[in-house]
Amino acid sequence: MTTTTPIIVLDLRTVQDHFPGIGRYTFHLAQALAETAPAWRFVMLTQPGAINTRFDVTGLARRPNVTLHAVSQAIFSPQEQITLPRDLPPGDLVHFPYYIFPYLSRRRTVVTIYDIISHLYPAYLPSALHRVVFEITTRLALARAAHILTLSTSAAADLQRVYGVDPGRITVTPAAADGRFRPASADAIHALRRRLGLPPRYVLFLGANKPHKNLLRLVEAWAKLKAQEATPSAAAGVSLVLAGREDPRYVGIRAAIAQAGLQNDILVLGAVSEADLPVLYSGAEVFILPSLYEGYGLPVIEAMACGVAVACSNTSSLPEVVGGDAGVLFDPADSDEMAAVLRRLLTDGALRTTLQQTGLARARQFTWQRTAELTLAGYEKEF
Rank of each mutant, 00 (worst) to 15 (best):
H130L: 10
N209W: 08
D158T: 03
Q47F: 09
V43Y: 05
D166I: 10
P232K: 11
F55C: 04
A128T: 14
P211A: 10
A363H: 08
T4L: 11
A156E: 00
R201M: 09
T112K: 10
L216I: 05
S317N: 03
L292V: 07
G197H: 07
E294Q: 09
P332Q: 09
P183A: 13
Y202H: 14
I257Y: 01
T171W: 03
A175G: 12
Y281I: 02
F101P: 02
G307D: 05
G270H: 09
I288H: 03
V238S: 01
S317R: 00
P200C: 07
V286F: 06
V328G: 00
S317F: 00
C312N: 06
E294W: 00
F42S: 01
P38K: 05
T3H: 08
K224E: 14
A155Q: 08
E380H: 10
I7R: 15
V238W: 10
F42V: 00
K381L: 12
A333D: 12
L262K: 02
K210P: 01
P167V: 08
V219F: 09
D336M: 12
Q357G: 12
A309N: 06
A175L: 11
L292W: 05
P183C: 11
L318I: 02
T109K: 06
L198E: 05
A143N: 14
L289T: 03
D166Y: 05
G237I: 10
A303E: 02
A230P: 08
V321G: 01
F383N: 04
V172P: 03
D334G: 08
E246W: 13
V71C: 04
P319T: 05
A141L: 05
F76L: 13
Q357F: 08
V111W: 00
V132T: 15
A340E: 10
